[in-house]
Amino acid sequence: MIEINDLCKNYGDKKALQHLTLQIKQGEIFGFLGHNGAGKSTTIKSLVSIIEPTSGSITVDGMELKEHRQEIKEKIAYVPDTPDIFLQLSAMEYWDLLTAAYNLSDQDVKQRRLQLVELFGMGEHVDGTIASFSHGMRQKAILIGALLSDPDIWILDEPMQGLDPQAAHDLKQLMKAHAKKGKTVIFSTHNLDTAQQLCDDLAILKKGQLIYNGTVNDLLAQHDNESLEDIYLQMAGRQDGGHLVDDIEGDNHE
Results as ranks from 00 to 15, higher is better:
E67Y: 01
D61Y: 09
H68E: 06
Y212P: 12
G31Y: 00
L97A: 10
T42H: 01
G37A: 07
W154K: 00
L174M: 13
E124C: 05
D84H: 11
D150C: 08
E93Q: 13
A101N: 13
Q70E: 15
S188T: 07
H68N: 13
S149W: 07
W95K: 09
F86N: 11
Q197V: 13
D152H: 15
I155Q: 04
I50H: 03
N213H: 15
Q197P: 05
E74F: 10
I144F: 01
K15W: 00
I155E: 08
H243S: 12
D96Y: 02
L210C: 10
E64C: 10
L114A: 14
I186C: 06
L89K: 06
L97D: 08
I29G: 12
K15Q: 13
K206A: 02
R69Y: 04
G37Y: 03
N252P: 00
F187E: 09
V245D: 14
D96K: 04
S41H: 04
D240W: 09
Q161P: 02
V126G: 06
T82I: 01
G62E: 08
D127V: 07
D13Q: 11
E249F: 14
L98E: 08
T215D: 05
A131D: 14
E158I: 02
A177V: 07
R113T: 03
H35R: 05
L171G: 05
D251H: 05
G128D: 11
L220P: 10
M92I: 13
Y102K: 10
Q161D: 09
R113G: 02
Q197E: 15
K207T: 04
L33K: 06
F32E: 13
H19G: 01
E158M: 01
N217A: 12
Q88Y: 06
V109Q: 03
L205R: 04
L116F: 11
T215S: 15
L114S: 14
G31T: 03
L20M: 02
H135R: 13
R113L: 07
D127R: 11
L244V: 12
D81Y: 01
D106T: 09
D96V: 01
S90F: 01
K9H: 09
M92R: 14
H253I: 13
K73S: 05
D200Q: 03
L148Y: 03
N213E: 14
G182F: 00
D152N: 11
D108R: 00
L114M: 11
V126Y: 04
L47Q: 06
V79H: 02
E71D: 14
D247N: 10
L47G: 07
S188R: 00
R112M: 03
A100H: 12
L97W: 12
H169R: 12
E254K: 04
S149Q: 10
L98V: 08
Q196D: 06
M137Q: 11
T99K: 05
P80C: 11
C199F: 12
G128Q: 14
K75M: 15
F86P: 09
K45Q: 15
G123P: 11
L143T: 05
N217L: 07
H19L: 00
G241Q: 04
A177K: 13
L89F: 13
T21L: 04
Y232F: 15
L192P: 01
S46Q: 03
A177H: 11
K183A: 00
L219E: 03
L163M: 02
M92V: 11
I29M: 14
M137C: 07
I231C: 12
A177R: 12
H178E: 09
K207G: 01
H253N: 14
D247C: 04
T215A: 07
K73N: 07
D251Q: 08
I142Q: 10
